[in-house]
């Protein structure tokens, strides 16, 4: 299985409020509210850690979800954010770019 790497885009603004992560694209103002699970993936999207490792470590372990189910949900989630340019996806590690404003 090819590893998937994810990294937060530099063209976003994000903040955590009451346990939820708010993310907005500065390119088209698309706004997302991420729940706890999605926030955990978002925080770990460093471009270096493979998605399946993030899910196993930060989702399955923390939220007691089976790996297959969690990974399928995570793939759909990252695809959606990627479609809006909020998250970068690659089958290679993604080098860091300009840091975002706001705390992930």
């Amino acid at each position: 299985m090819t590893a998937t790497y994810i990294a937060r885009s530099s063209a976003i603004a994000s903040r955590v409020l009451a346990g939820e992560t708010m993310v907005m694209s500065v390119l088209d103002s698309t706004f997302f509210t991420l729940n706890e699970v999605a926030s955990a993936i978002w925080r770990a999207a460093d471009g270096i850690t493979p998605l399946h490792e993030i899910v196993a470590r930060d989702v399955c372990h923390e939220f007691e979800v089976p790996i297959d189910e969690a990974l399928a949900d995570a793939r759909e989630f990252v695809r959606e954010l990627s479609a809006h340019g909020i998250l970068q996806i690659s089958d290679q590690p993604i080098l860091p770019t300009v840091p975002t404003i706001g705390t992930p």
């Binding site: 603004a13 409020l17 708010m22 907005m24 500065v26 390119l27 103002s29 706004f31």
Partner: peptide
């Protein structure tokens, strides 16, 4: 978070400028 989203939806902003969008956020 919903309050923030609702507020952002109602804030008047016309410029296509990434830095200002971040400021509005």
């Amino acid at each position: 978070a919903l309050a923030t989203q609702a507020l952002l939806r109602n804030i008047l902003f016309f410029a296509r400028d990434a830095a200002l969008v971040q400021s509005v956020f």
